[in-house]
Nucleic acid binder design. Structure first.
Lengths: 129, 129
DNA sequence: CAAGGCTGATTACATCTGTAGTCATTGCGA
DNA sequence: TCGCAATGACTACAGATGTAATCAGCCTTG
């Protein structure tokens, strides 16, 4: 299997994300295991999961460690990193890079529940003593 | 031009978004005008812009109002609506639907500047007297 | 009136994505 | 030991996307 080891910069697609999520939850799983987990939600065949795994390895997002005659797949990027990147992309594309605008938007469109607001307030207290 | 008038549910792509942004900024522009504006940033040909405009009309995201023998293009969806939808998608996909988690993440990863924090705090004060 | 330019329509085409089938191999169980 | 099930590699293929060329018609300008 060709393993181009680049620093991930390739984008992870929606379908691929479902696979990543399974492996972030529990690393070092075989294709069959990943399939079992992911096919609970999305109705995919094992073949589909294998394709996605291969593409993710190709993209440098997963490592495939040989284990007998199969592979154990493990994320090469932390979920935090990915999530951070995607959040930043959204903020950049839609809010001119201003994160506060996003929060304002969420608040204004009622996307934030009372609990959310309380949680954020608590967070703020912690961040700015 | 076939104008399928559906309620937009088609996704707007990255390239298309650049076009939408120009028209949100100033509606009722011709293809040439949009091109002039958008080609400042992305190095596209007029042909490309026309394709994107056509696809957006097709998707029901733009209206094409005849003006002589050309069209004036105008957004059919508000920027707010689009932004709201995309934000929600992100929160759902990456934060299990919990908007507060997104804010927490932004805060923890230092994506929020001191100014951002102050702004959010002010917002909160306003929202919960 | 004729030539040229602008306009939308149509077509093109490579790449990416989603979804999967086939094939050769190989290790395991009977 | 022998057949089979599991596994990775390769192939497939339709639809979306990015990027653009070409074409036919019409409006303007000379």
């Amino acid at each position: 299997m060709t393993t181009p080891q680049d620093p991930v910069h390739e984008r992870i697609t929606e379908a691929e994300l479902a696979v990543m999520d399974v492996l972030w939850e529990r690393p070092r799983q075989t294709a069959a295991e990943v399939c079992e987990a992911v096919c609970a939600t999305r109705d995919w065949s094992l073949a589909t999961v294998k394709t996605l795994l291969a593409r993710l390895v190709q993209k440098g997002a997963l490592a495939a460690a040989p284990d007998g005659r199969r592979y154990l797949y493990t994320p090469l990027i932390a979920r935090e990193t990915y999530v951070g990147g995607e959040s930043r992309r959204l903020v950049d594309r839609l809010f001119g890079g201003r994160a506060a605008s996003l929060v304002a938007h969420l608040a204004e469109t009622e996307a934030l529940t009372e609990d959310d607001l309380a949680e954020i307030e608590a967070l703020l207290k912690e961040l700015r003593p």
